[in-house]
Structure formats: structure tokens, C-alpha cells
């Protein structure tokens, strides 16, 4: 770019946005009024649109090019790598770490003190099914072997509908918003073919709460609300008619029983 060009005034940004269809609706009338009285602006808009259409048409001609097998193979390879990367990121994200932490708390709650040493044999031990699933999830986490799907916080309606369909029963929002938390994401983890719905919340003080739900087996015995604390984590777990619930947080501001009550409603 020459110095002379550098000194040139930049063409009107509103006019460019008008051409590109990005002008806010409230400004469109203003620009159109200007175009009605300014022949040069009108000419500029017409020419920019023409250039844009010609370049767009040239670009679109790529769609008529024959398929390129090498590109398709590279595309598949990249998709696989990105998928692995995404899975890795999910499994190493703060939410899953919190779940992993909750597993340790679970284990402690049932008097198991050697989770890591005894490994997967504990999964089928003398624990409630949903604890076993969570334990299995923990080992899957360590082995990066389970699948997941994630929805951002602004897609909760879609998330709840999808989670309900996947878990074959109605999944309601934990609704911790009334306690000042905002949902960050919802996720489905599949552990030993058992779906686990996980919701991640955070409040303005950056304190996080994780809520997980797993289907309750017909043969599973009832579990009343229990709370536990290991190191800095607080946890509550219980079962309803159809679901098992776990709430985990490191927050001291809101008691774990209050969080559990909010989820139980």
C-alpha cells in the first residue's frame, strides 16, 4: 500500500455495510435517503455490488469443479484428528475434572478408600448402580474412551429436548438460576452404555456447580439425600423415582443442601 493510499479517506463504512447487507435496520433508511440525493454514493454502491457479484460468481464456480479425491481424503483425516482433539478437550475440561473429583468423593462416601489402586474392579462392586456408572465414567475419563455431546448454555431448550430423547425420559433443567448461577453447558456422556446428563453452572463469583443425572434402574434401591465433603468439594446425591442425581461444588457461599433442594424442587 502506498503512502498516498494511506492518506486517502476510508470510504463510508455505512455504505459498505449497506452493500454487504450488514447495516443495522435502523440505519438502512438513513443510508437510502442519502443515496437518493448523492449520485456519487449511488454510483459507488452500484459498482461495489457489481464487483462483489462478479467475485462471488467466480468463487461459486469452484462448486462445479470435479471432486478432488486427495482433498476428500485430507478432509476425512482432519475431521478424525479434530474429533480426537475435541474429545480430549472435553475430557480434560474443568467440568469433567469436577465429575472425576465427585467420583473420589462418591468412593469416599461409600467407604472406598483405594479407588485408584483397585481400578475398574470397583465398578461392579457393592455400590449403587449410579455410583458404579460414575466410577466407570471416571475410569473412562482416565482412558479417554467415552463419547459425549455438548450444548452451550444458550441452547438449553434444545439440550433438554435432546437429553430427554437420548435418556428416554423427561430431563428438566436443574434451574440453579434462582440461586444466582448461570448454566454454561449441558453434556451427555455415555458410560458403559448408560447415558449421564451433566449440567455445568457458574455464578458471578466464578464458583462452579456440576449437576449430573443418570437413569434409575427399576431394580435399584432407593437412596435418600446424602451429603459428603472431601477436601474442598461438597457433594450431595440421591435418587428419585426415575433418576439418580449428583450435585458437586467447591462453593462455600451456597450450602450444598440448598443447591440439592433447588435441583429437587
Amino acid at each position: 500500500m502506498t503512502k498516498a493510499e494511506d492518506r486517502e479517506p476510508v470510504p463510508d463504512i455505512d455504505l459498505m455495510a449497506y452493500v454487504d447487507g450488514t447495516l443495522p435496520p435502523e440505519k438502512v433508511a438513513e443510508v437510502e435517503a442519502r443515496l437518493a440525493r448523492d449520485a456519487d454514493a449511488r454510483d459507488a454502491v452500484a459498482q461495489w455490488r457489481h464487483f462483489d457479484n462478479v467475485i462471488h460468481g467466480a468463487a461459486r464456480s469452484a462448486d462445479a469443479q470435479p471432486a478432488n479425491l486427495r482433498i476428500e481424503a485430507l478432509e476425512r483425516q482432519l475431521a478424525q484428528k479434530l474429533q480426537r482433539r475435541r474429545r480430549w478437550a472435553v475430557l480434560n475440561g474443568p467440568g469433567v475434572r469436577q465429575i472425576a473429583a465427585s467420583v473420589v468423593i462418591f468412593a469416599a462416601g461409600w467407604g472406598a478408600h483405594a479407588v485408584y489402586d483397585r481400578g475398574a474392579s470397583m465398578v461392579n462392586g457393592a455400590y449403587p448402580a449410579f455410583v458404579s456408572q460414575t466410577l466407570a465414567g471416571h475410569y473412562s475419563y482416565m482412558l479417554a474412551a467415552h463419547e459425549s455431546a455438548e450444548f452451550p448454555g444458550d441452547q438449553m431448550d434444545d439440550a433438554l429436548a435432546w437429553l430427554s430423547a437420548e435418556m428416554q425420559q423427561r430431563i428438566d433443567s436443574p434451574q440453579l438460576e434462582r440461586l444466582g448461577y448461570q448454566v454454561e453447558s449441558a453434556r451427555l456422556m455415555v458410560v458403559d452404555e448408560v447415558p449421564v446428563a451433566v449440567f455445568y453452572y457458574r455464578n458471578p463469583d466464578d464458583q462452579r456447580v456440576t449437576v449430573s443425572m443418570t437413569p434409575r434402574e427399576a431394580t435399584q434401591s432407593d437412596h435418600a439425600l446424602r451429603v459428603a465433603r472431601v477436601q474442598d468439594e461438597h457433594m450431595a446425591y440421591w435418587s428419585s423415582d426415575s433418576l439418580n442425581y449428583v450435585v458437586v461444588t467447591s462453593s462455600e457461599d451456597v450450602p450444598i443442601t440448598t443447591l440439592a433442594a433447588a435441583v429437587q424442587r
Binding site: 493510499e5 486517502e8 470510504p11 463510508d12 459498505m16 459507488a44 459498482q47 461495489w48 464487483f51
Partner: peptide
């Protein structure tokens, strides 16, 4: 970016 886009369009014209 906007500056370059604007100058580019003007130069193209």
C-alpha cells in the same frame, strides 16, 4: 480490516 476493504473497493473502482 474495514480500512483495507474500503480502500480496496475505492481503488478497484
Amino acid at each position: 480490516f474495514m480500512s483495507r476493504l474500503g480502500r480496496g473497493r475505492a481503488a478497484l473502482r
